[in-house]
């Protein structure tokens, strides 16, 4: 089971995403933004970071990368595609997901362990969660405020396309507390928080039982692997 992780100029969490794939039992495949080649992978991760220094708009220049032509085609054919943070921004810039992400309402970079509620468990990346499950994974971004027009928000809510919602105090001004969304088909998911940083005991968020033992993010990667196996 091979999951490609695309490295863009300025990606930071590509290696972490590869590690998360490995911990979930998959084989990570490093892909390069400048290629037109997905190397026959079964699923794709667009990792976090600051591609092109967030120049123009976060994710905008990366969304025009050569490999994005193949990514868009693969997404439209049903391949599971996950965009994390900067990857989520790229997916909105590439019009694979609706809406956009703007500077945090608080005006500062936010870095914390964030509690989320899983709102949709029928996507390729969330099928291993319980409906309404509360999870904690790291959040770290400067431009994480999710926005969309009222019509789009109504459609997201009406069709159950909100995948994750922030619990507790809204960290970045995202409308409707939206932390992540999916497309209608459920194969493309984007979220601002970082599941790949909560996949290995000793390196995740604190839990009531032990420091840094949180591995709630791992389920996103095992979900994709299960889905690919089942499909």
């Amino acid at each position: 089971m091979r999951i490609g992780v695309i490295t863009f100029p300025g990606s930071l969490d590509d290696r972490d995403a590869q590690r998360a794939v490995r911990l979930a039992g998959g084989e990570p495949v490093a892909l390069w933004h400048g290629d037109h080649d997905l190397a026959g992978v079964d699923a794709l991760v667009l990792p976090g970071g600051f591609s092109y220094g967030d120049y123009l708009r976060a994710g905008a220049i990366a969304s025009l990368s050569p490999i994005m032509r193949e990514v868009v085609a693969a997404a439209n054919s049903g391949m599971p595609v996950l965009g994390i943070c900067n990857g989520f921004q790229m997916l909105t810039e590439a019009h694979l997901l609706p809406g956009g992400l703007i500077r945090n309402e608080v005006g500062t970079f936010v870095c914390k362990d964030q509690k989320l509620r899983v709102e949709n468990t029928s996507t390729a990346w969330t099928n291993g969660f319980e409906q309404g499950q509360e999870i904690t994974i790291p959040l770290k971004n400067g431009e994480g405020g999710y926005i969309a027009d009222e019509e789009t928000l109504a459609r997201l809510e009406g069709e159950g396309l909100v995948a994750f919602r922030y619990l507790g105090k809204n960290p970045n001004g995202s409308l409707r507390d939206i932390a992540g969304i999916t497309n209608a088909r459920g194969n493309v998911v984007g979220l601002m928080p970082h599941p790949e940083h909560a996949t290995e005991p000793g390196f995740g968020p604190d839990t009531p039982t032990a420091m840094r033992s949180g591995v709630d993010g791992l389920t996103m990667f095992t979900s994709a692997l299960q889905g690919v196996l089942a499909g």
Partner: peptide, 9 residues
């Protein structure tokens, strides 16, 4: 199409 994003700008 490119210099702006009509969703936010």
């Amino acid at each position: 199409d490119m210099l702006s994003n009509s969703v936010i700008e």
